[in-house]
Design a protein around this nucleic acid. Structure first.
Lengths: 350, 1322
DNA sequence: ATGTTACCTAGTGATATAAGTAATAGAGAATGC
DNA sequence: CCATTCTCTACCGACAATATCACTAGGTAATGC
């Protein structure tokens, strides 16, 4: 496998400016072992591997996990030759050019029987299904957000259980989803993450310039910075980024594991979080109004301890208190969805 | 990013700024290049003008109006630092005028104050107005003291005195008389008009505060807040049918007590031999008018009606709010009396009652705010607010405001005191309900803006009412026979500053917030636990946000329990959005015309001070008279409602069913329960589909809802105007095209709107009239591609159907008219034809009111063909005589068909070639064979039409593909999965075909696009401007300074407004609002300027053609237009046709593109372009020396002086320092232009760059071929060396004088041929 | 009375927001190595 | 300076994103002399 990987290293485009591609097979192995994936080898888990690019990391993962099925989904034509080369003569390793952006690609995997895993109850982490994706591209953040929504609904791969999800992403995205209450990057999506997933930071790499900028910003900010508590399993000092990654871009490697926390009143939860986080820095006594006609006067008396707190500072539990109260409110809006209007196209009038 | 544009801000303040700008510009290096071309150059007003200034101005006026002289004085002092001298003078004069008027006896104080001001403000320079005011002040002191006048006269000196006295508008007659008398001036030294004036002893032309008889007086207002009071219920009894339409009420209800009007109506009844009715509801002026046969009597009728309507129009414009409030109150009182049972409940049968309750709930909040405002208003500055007041306001048990809240309220306090408080809740509610009846989502920013703007309007209305009242009574005392609009027109315009956006938005948000926090309704809901119904009260509205894509917008949501009760019935309509009952105020200057009580600009600008400034200059140069005249012809065309059509459409409307394009009744919020909600853990794609489906339903519903609301508006207005004579005041878009100011009901609207309108004036059909009516009907049926004889015979063969449809249009058997292109207009034409045929005196004598249309066939292309002298193009668009109209769309279709046929043959060849291997052939090849065959049978005119039409507007491939795919989607049998590829294929062919067919037009388009690009990319050497760039952190950018500007053939300056605007946040109580900051430098949007120039230029030509035709029709025939569709009476169509052709010839008698090029060259003469020339040419060598000098001058001490390519901003900087290093541009100026053009055109890229290009393609496409190790490492190593060949600059960047390349040669087509081209307009 | 400094404020520019991109193409502007 | 990446895609009438924060400039108050 390792030899083959040396070959597939060739298959990365030199002219790209964006993205992150691991070229060091050994670092890949190190990542796996730090995450304890070597203990999963006996399960021979199915690995769904989105955007493997030239496949070095996939190869290392494959070698560690010995999966019964390792599915590489890489839509970019430029990698096809390399990946074909990587998977040849190995029935357990398959490559498809279907786009993992497209949900139907996964449906197809299930329908064709490539993805056959038991549904494991949420009390335990799924031992034999792992999803990994390289999301350091323009739509990466969107996909991260979608995956979190899927965890919330327990749909997509998460209907199988608490599937380990190992994602390469932009550090900014990582900060956003991992921010705790009261921290600088706390956002709607971090509330959702807090509700649905635990995490481990494997690598958190920023170039010296970005680091300096971030430091300066953190120092000036009135809020605490997430970097304080996001300690990577593999510190920067152990990696030679210039050698191991061809494009010198920042990235974070994050593992998300769904939590055993089922949210019953899902629509209400989404509605409340969305509407309160729209103005997360105003206290609840102002923000409650956004929930509906009379929400302030009706709900405030039931949340006296939270009324002066801002949603920005609220933990998941506190948010859930509001959600509960809102759910029981007789006058809550009947339609908890908003619909955006598109700029209407000029129609030919004839 | 997009943000709120404040249209009104530009109207007066900005124009004043620009005037000032221009004045200073003229004397500095910024003088306009050519007096006849030009006009101010756009330049960011950097130091002199800022937002603070605006607010200070408006505050000053407000304070003066409130007699708060102390604060006014401090504002004037503040103005000194932020404004220029002339404005300062204006401010001081305003102060003086107001002070003198208010305190006629404190004459010495006035003098002292002025002295003090002169001391405190060295920049202040008194002008003649100041002197005149001081004279007046001195005269007021007269019986008591003579010293003031003596002193004033002596300091003034005789020549100045005479100059002042000769300007009638400066002083009232009384003062003039006193001054003349006192100074013992020989009256002969004054100008004759003034001498006459003094002899006639005319009363002074000065506003006197005489209460308008119609004004609701204070007693009434006090009573209103008391719901039990009923004393005025009788006098204000509205007409019986309140539900009919609120405007009807506003129009007629308020006039019941006016004896003059009764008198007029009596006369009108007598003239038309109609029984008199006191109730205006029953009067149909149009029917009365029609009864009159004697032309003299008709004339007299018209005159009396006009006189009556002037009063009614004025009432309408000024009394809207009072009318609404009275009606709510009346309804409320009546309902309280009638149904005591449901007293506290929402009365579903009357929203008026609800509104009255809300009004009462809100009023105390308003009062409280006003109290606060009254406390705050007297203080000149926030810091000077006395501690006692501050204590009162911040008292925890009292107002309980924080310091910052007080500061916030202090900002707008004086403005709140300017209007009748009772009107504030009323206008807030009106605006909210009005918007609710228009848009599906209520955007809070729109509401705030509209409410704030309405407060301002209310204030201005009050100001204007005062002054008009003065004139009116004066005229009345002279027993003038009729109050001619001309008399009012001579009124001195009341100068007032427009309120700044901050004030407007903050007042708007204050009122909106007060309203939504006070308006409550009864609600019921289900307790989720017990399942029982719970009743309570809750706010009727609430503020929240929603996401639109990824961006959030603030919205006001209705409580779902409202159940659409505010929709439809009893709306109040802004009177200045209605057609006018009397002749509109004629356009005499760029900002005077249209409605009587609104300052309307002749040009619709979106807060673009640049546009206003150019218009202003053109106007003051009397360059726009032709435009005014043309527009006034449109304004003076009188209309009335087509009763037959109104009845029919009302009937259809009331059925609440879909009928042709009238949508069925819908609820505001549709039922989504029919869409199955997927399981929570469904596939994400399923969830997405569900949401999309819901969204589609909601949006579709919203669109129907808006359509229905819009039609409701139209019908409401039409009903109210039934039997009335009315006018459409027009103004222009920035290209000069005319639009009616009445946005809802006008002849530019859809088929329904148009069918509801007929000319007030009727004309006998005469010999040709019926023929033209028939032609009109054929055209409305879409039968306009055949020649005249065929069109007429189309109607003749269907004449039975015409008559049947006219007689019983709703009969199921008579649905022929519904098949027309414009069914409702067609039906109106059918009815007219039937009436004509039934006319007992013969159809020649039938008096027709219907407008017959003559439409240009592809008007844009017609202008292009005429411009380019394109023989072939001219033939295609009917500029030349032909037996049959040429149809561009069919011609294009033909060519496309040919192309497709060719492709089919090619495809067959390909198929043979690949015989057998077809299955393995690429998708692409398969499509090449398949698509032409698929598309060939469905090619119709309809498919290409829209694309051909929009091609003139610069539609691109993507747009064209979209259009065609829409057409293909309409075809039921077309395979859905092929729509995309087929439409792409067709779009390509259609666009190419049009280009082939109108080669000349495209040459002109390309030239225009090129010109726009050069203009926008040009730079200007301007110290101030470049400093502005430097101060910004962003990268210095020196181009994108000037917009494309030209003058249309009528003299209207046209400025393309497309710029990148910066936004500024306004913090309000509810949320931030983002407004476009007109005072920041806005670089032009080059792309938009370029793509929009061709269509805009051609539109400026067709607009000119229309206005020229309108002018030529004045006093001869009735004229109306919809851009390129000209309307007149059936009897006059021949005349119209002749005129419009003559004007077209006149327009194109010169080569307008050449003229345009010359104008560009003149206007942008001091602009410079950035070009590249080969680095080794002689010119480059010379320039390099200057560049080197500059580099030496500006380098850091440590660095070496090494030649490099200068950036654009450095090149500009160099020219700014040309006294030190010499000018590079001057070297170019001495260089041969033709040679320079050659140098620029020379490809700077040599073989080296080609190599680079091939490398690039390799990286992208042939990557897969990198399968062997050596090549891989090889390419890795060399990737860094790619720039070796480019290390030596092959070209350098320099500035050259602005230049326009030669224009395309004009072809040989003689435009005069249109004179006998029958189908040019048809 | 004047200089200095800390403190305060308003204004400005930057960034994030949500969370399908159902498909496609080509030019021109912006960006960045 | 050129290659990559981003943006936009039909004119006008026309109708529109906000919250929040860090930074800055400029003023004021406080304090010391």
């Amino acid at each position: 496998m390792q030899n083959r990987t040396l070959e597939c290293r060739k298959f990365f485009p030199r002219f790209r400016k964006t993205g992150v591609t691991l070229l060091n097979y050994d670092l890949g192995k190190k990542i796996s072992s730090k995450l304890g994936y070597d203990k999963l080898t006996s399960f021979h888990p199915t690995v769904v591997d989105a955007y493997p690019e030239c496949g070095v990391f996939s190869a290392s993962l494959n070698s560690t996990l010995q999966p019964k099925k390792h599915i590489l989904m890489e839509p970019l034509k430029m990698y096809s030759k390399g990946l074909q080369f990587l998977v040849q003569d190995n029935p357990k390793l398959m490559y498809t050019s279907n786009d993992p952006y497209d949900w139907t690609s996964f449906k197809e995997l299930e329908e064709k029987g490539y993805l056959k895993e038991p549904v494991v109850p949420y009390s335990d982490v799924h031992p034999s299904l792992i999803y990994t994706a390289n999301l350091v591209h323009t739509h990466g953040e969107q996909l991260v957000a979608q995956y979190l929504n899927c965890m919330l609904r327990r749909s997509w791969l998460f209907k199988y259980g608490r599937v380990r999800t190992l994602l390469w992403m932009n550090p900014k995205t990582a900060l956003k989803i991992l921010a705790s209450p009261g921290y600088q990057n706390r956002a709607r999506i971090s509330c959702i993450r807090e509700a649905v997933a635990d995490y481990r930071v494997v690598i958190f790499h920023e170039s010296p310039e970005s680091q300096a900028k971030a430091k300066a910003k953190a120092a000036a900010s009135r809020f605490q910075n997430e970097r304080e508590y996001l300690t990577p399993l593999i510190p920067d000092s152990e990696i030679d980024f210039e050698k191991d990654f061809p494009y010198q871009n920042d990235f974070a490697l994050i593992e998300l594991i769904p939590r055993d926390n089922y949210i019953e009143n899902l629509d209400e939860f989404e509605y409340v979080v969305t509407h309160l986080m729209m103005r997360m820095k105003v206290p609840l006594r102002v923000g409650l109004e956004y929930l509906g006609a009379g929400a302030l006067e009706d709900l405030a008396p039931k949340l006296p301890h939270l009324i002066n707190k801002t949603p920005f500072n609220m933990s998941h539990d506190e948010i859930m208190q509001i959600v509960e109260v809102f759910t029981l409110w007789p006058f809550k809006p009947k339609l908890l969805l908003d619909f955006y209007e598109e700029s209407l196209l000029a129609l030919g009038n004839n | 990013m997009v943000a709120r544009r404040f249209r009104y801000l530009a109207a007066s303040n900005a124009a004043r700024i620009w005037q000032g700008r221009l004045a200073s510009t003229m004397t500095s290096s910024y003088r306009a290049p050519m007096a006849n071309v030009s006009t101010p150059r756009y330049k960011a007003p950097i130091h002199l003008f800022d937002n603070n200034r605006n607010h200070t101005w408006t505050l000053l006026e407000a304070c003066l109006d409130l007699n708060n002289f102390k604060r006014a004085e401090s504002l004037i002092l503040a103005l000194e630092n932020i404004t220029q001298s002339s404005d300062l003078t204006m401010a001081v004069n305003m102060y003086l005028r107001k002070f003198i008027d208010t305190n006629p006896d404190r004459n010495q104080d006035v003098v002292d104050w002025l002295q003090l001001i002169k001391l405190k403000m060295p920049n202040f320079e008194p002008n003649e107005v100041t002197d005149a005011l001081m004279l007046r002040n001195a005269c007021l002191a007269l019986p008591r003291s003579h010293s003031l006048l003596t002193k004033a006269l002596s300091t003034l000196g005789k020549p100045k005195l005479i100059s002042i006295l000769n300007q009638r508008e400066l002083l009232d007659v009384e003062t003039v008389k006193q001054v003349v008398e006192y100074s013992q001036l020989d009256i002969q030294e004054l100008s004759t008009p003034i001498q006459q004036l003094l002899q006639d002893d005319m009363s002074p032309l000065e506003s006197t505060e005489i209460e308008d008889t119609n004004t609701v007086n204070d007693d009434e207002i006090v009573n209103i807040s008391d719901p039990i009071a009923k004393n005025d219920a009788d006098t204000l009894t509205p007409t019986s049918s309140i539900g009919l339409a609120s405007i009807r009420y506003a129009l007629k209800g308020l006039e019941l007590n006016d004896n003059n009007e009764d008198h007029d109506i009596l006369k009108l009844c007598a003239l038309s031999n109609t029984p008199y009715s006191h109730n205006l509801e029953d009067i149909n002026f149009f029917e009365m008018y029609q009864k009159i046969e004697n032309p003299e009597d008709r004339k007299q009728f018209d005159a009396i009606l006009e006189k009556l309507n002037i009063r009614r129009q004025q009432t309408l414009e000024t009394k809207g709010l009072e009318a609404a409030r009275m009606r709510w109150k009346y309804t409320f009182q009546r309902l309280v009396k009638l149904d005591q049972k449901s007293d506290a409940n929402i009365s579903l049968h009357s929203t008026d009652k609800l509104k009255w309750e809300w009004f009462q709930a809100m009023m105390p909040l308003v009062r409280k705010e006003i109290e606060i405002a009254k406390l705050l208003a007297p203080f000149p500055e926030f810091n000077k607010i006395s501690t006692s007041v501050l204590d009162v306001l911040t008292d925890k048990n009292g107002y309980n405001l924080t310091r910052s809240e007080v500061k916030y309220k202090f900002f707008y306090a004086p403005f709140l005191l300017l209007v009748n408080p009772e009107n504030l809740p009323a206008l807030t509610m009106n605006e909210l309900i009005r918007l609710h009846n228009q848009e599906f989502t209520l955007k809070s920013t729109i509401l705030m803006e509209r409410i704030g703007k309405n407060v301002e309007k209310e204030y201005q209305l009050g100001q204007q009412k005062k002054s008009i009242a003065g004139i009116k009574t004066e005229e009345a005392s002279k027993d003038a026979v009729d109050l001619n609009p001309k008399d009012i027109e001579t009124l001195p315009a009341i100068p007032h500053a427009k309120w700044d956006p901050e004030t407007i938005l903050r007042i708007g948000s204050l009122l909106l917030k007060m309203f939504i926090s006070s308006a409550r309704i009864r609600v019921s809901g289900k307790d989720p636990i017990t399942g029982l119904e719970v009743k309570s009260t809750a706010p009727a509205f609430y503020h929240t946000y929603k996401y639109q894509m990824s961006t959030k917008i603030g919205i006001i949501k209705c409580n779902p329990n409202m159940n659409d009760i505010l929709i439809g019935e009893n709306q109040t309509i802004n009177p200045q959005q209605l057609p006018m009952l009397c002749k509109p105020k004629p356009w005499t200057s760029w900002n005077s015309g249209g409605y009587w009580y609104a300052n309307t600009s002749i040009i619709r600008t979106n807060n673009c001070p640049e546009q206003e400034a150019y218009i202003d200059v053109a106007s003051s140069r009397n360059q726009l008279n032709a435009v005014y005249e043309g527009l006034n012809v449109l304004n003076d065309t009188s209309w009335t409602v087509n009763k037959n059509m109104l009845q029919l459409i009302s009937k259809i409307w009331n059925s609440k069913e879909t009928f042709i394009d009238i949508p069925a009744h819908v609820e505001a919020m549709p039922d989504l329960s029919s869409i199955p909600k997927p399981a929570r853990d469904c596939d994400p794609a399923a969830l997405r589909d569900y949401r999309r489906k819901c969204r589609e339903v909601v949006l579709k519903n919203g669109s129907l809802y808006s359509q229905r609301c819009d039609l409701n508006y139209k019908l409401d207005i039409a009903r109210a105007l039934l039997g009335e004579k009315f006018y459409m005041p027009h103004n222009l878009d920035f290209r000069g095209r005319a639009y009616p100011l009445s946005p809802h009901f006008n002849h530019l609207g859809n088929d329904v709107s148009r069918s509801l309108l007929i000319f007030w004036e009727g004309k006998k059909l005469g010999p040709n009239g019926l023929w033209w009516l028939k032609l009109h009907l054929a055209n409305l049926f879409g039968v306009n591609k055949s020649n005249y004889a065929e069109r007429i015979s189309f109607v003749d063969t269907n004449i039975e159907k015409v008559i049947q449809c006219a007689e019983d249009p709703l009969n199921k058997n008579n649905s022929w008219w519904k098949t027309a292109d414009a069914p409702f207009q067609a039906l109106a034409a059918c009815i007219e034809i039937r009436e004509a045929l039934n006319c007992p005196q013969g159809h020649e004598n039938y008096i027709s009111h219907l407008a017959v249309h003559q439409d240009g066939s592809c008007n844009g292309l017609q202008h292009y063909a005429a411009l380019g002298g394109d023989v072939e193009g001219a033939r295609e668009v009917n500029l030349e005589r032909a037996d049959k109209p040429q149809d561009v769309y069919s011609r294009v279709l033909e060519i496309v068909k040919q192309k497709v046929a060719k492709d089919i043959i090619k495809g067959q060849a390909l198929e043979k070639e690949l015989e057998g291997k077809l299955t393995s052939a690429s998708q692409n090849i398969k499509a090449q064979i398949e698509i032409p065959n698929l598309v060939s049978p469905i090619l119709t005119r309809k498919i290409v039409k829209q694309t051909v039409m929009t091609n003139v507007y610069g539609v691109t491939f993507v747009g064209a593909r979209e259009q065609i795919s829409n057409r293909l989607a309409d075809l039921p049998d077309f395979p859905k999965n092929k729509i995309f590829s087929s439409s792409a294929y067709l779009a390509k062919h259609v666009l190419n075909s049009v280009r082939e067919l109108f080669e000349s037009a495209h040459e002109i388009q390309d030239w225009l696009g090129m010109a726009a690009k050069r203009i926008c990319n040009a730079v200007v050497i301007d110290k101030e401007l470049s400093e502005n760039y430097k101060s910004k952190k962003s990268k210095p950018k020196v181009s994108s300074v000037s917009a494309v500007i030209w003058t249309n053939p009528l003299g209207l300056p046209i400025v393309q407004p497309y710029r990148e605007s910066k936004t500024r946040a306004v913090t309000t109580e509810m949320q931030n609002v983002y407004i476009v900051d007109p005072y920041s430098f806005q670089p032009v949007n080059t792309r938009k300027q370029r793509t929009a120039l061709p269509p805009n230029y051609v539109h400026s030509l067709d607009a000119s053609h229309m206005l020229m035709t309108a002018r030529a029709c004045a006093n001869r025939i009735t004229f109306a237009s919809v851009h390129d569709s000209y309307w007149t009476h059936a009897s006059d169509v021949d005349c119209l046709n002749k005129t419009l052709r003559e004007k077209f010839v006149e327009l194109h008698s010169t080569y307008l593109i050449e003229q345009l090029r010359n104008e560009f060259l003149q206007r942008y003469a001091d602009h410079l372009e950035i070009v590249r020339i080969p680095a080794d040419c002689d010119l480059a060598m010379e320039i390099k020396e200057v560049h080197l000098k500059y580099i030496a001058l500006t380098k850091e001490k440590s660095s070496k002086t090494k030649l490099r390519i200068l950036t654009a901003s450095e090149l500009v900087d160099l020219e700014l320092r040309k006294d030190k290093v010499g000018s590079a541009v001057d070297i170019v100026r001495n260089y041969d232009r033709a040679k320079l053009e050659q140098l620029c055109a020379e490809p700077t890229k040599s073989s080296g760059s080609q190599k680079q290009k091939s490398l690039k393609t390799k990286s992208e496409e042939e990557f897969n071929d990198f399968t062997n190790e050596e090549e891989f490492s090889d390419s890795l190593d060399h990737s860094a060396n790619a720039s070796v060949s480019s290390s030596k600059a092959r070209s350098i960047q320099i500035l050259v004088p602005f230049y326009m390349p030669p224009i395309p040669k004009r072809g040989s087509f003689d435009v005069r041929k249109v004179l006998d081209s029958p189908y040019f307009f048809s």
